[in-house]
Design a protein around this nucleic acid. Structure first.
Lengths: 110, 110
DNA sequence: ACTATTTATCGTAATATTGCAATATACAAA
DNA sequence: TTTGTATATTGCAATATTACGATAAATAGT
């Protein structure tokens, strides 16, 4: 064995896990933070910002895109990346649900 | 290679990535959801709820604990697990930061 | 002390992720 | 068409994760 038993869990659980997993690498957190900082899209300067080789960065970008956390547009010879708000909305609402449930709890005994 | 280059990123980025990674598996999402649902702590019935063997569940619980997302207390012969609010607060605030930054953005061009 | 119950750890096989060199692709400009 | 620039893909090695059987550790009850 070794493969995740995704089929044993709900689609919702798998979707949330995939979103969380996509953020489960410091390089990908760094990419999101940079995208937020530049107040627009990134059109070609991500590789220079990260301490990783170009193919590695490309791979991380692909994963964020697959997860639905960023979007990419071809813009001439460069590619323009930006945050995909829908994906963030989805995972953010999970944490809001957690907060709400915790507030309603009678005791959190540990 | 193959090892994550954690030392090339900030402590903050690594911390967030670790929290996200801990939630990056459907079984661990399921554990959190169950902990929220039972309106108290779990004292021994997690294994019966998940479609995984006992050692596997134990391992997932350990990862959630290491990440600071749950806490565990020995309670006689059973162990009592519950949500660790501090960890969730930390990651929730990241998503709030993302939302705020997005709202301030002039254009999200893609 | 013995037995049953619950959770943790060890060992290991299967699979996934990370990272990069080499290479391919796509487009713009000369 | 050739050259340069930017990004993606391929292939592979190193490492990490996932899952579970076997076993250990801890405690409660008899």
């Amino acid at each position: 064995m070794g493969a995740t038993k995704s089929d044993q869990f709900t689609e919702e659980q798998n979707k949330l896990a995939l979103l969380a997993k996509a953020l489960g690498h410091p390089a990908r957190i760094a990419i999101i933070e940079y995208l937020l900082k530049v107040d627009s899209c990134i059109c070609g300067d991500i590789v220079g910002v990260l301490p990783l080789a170009q193919p590695t960065v490309s791979q991380h970008l692909k994963e964020l895109k697959n997860a639905g956390l960023i979007k990419g547009n071809i813009e001439g010879t460069a590619i323009c990346y930006c945050i995909d708000e829908a994906g963030f909305e989805k995972i953010k609402s999970f944490f809001e649900h957690v907060s709400l449930s915790l507030a309603k709890k009678k005791y959190n005994c540990c």
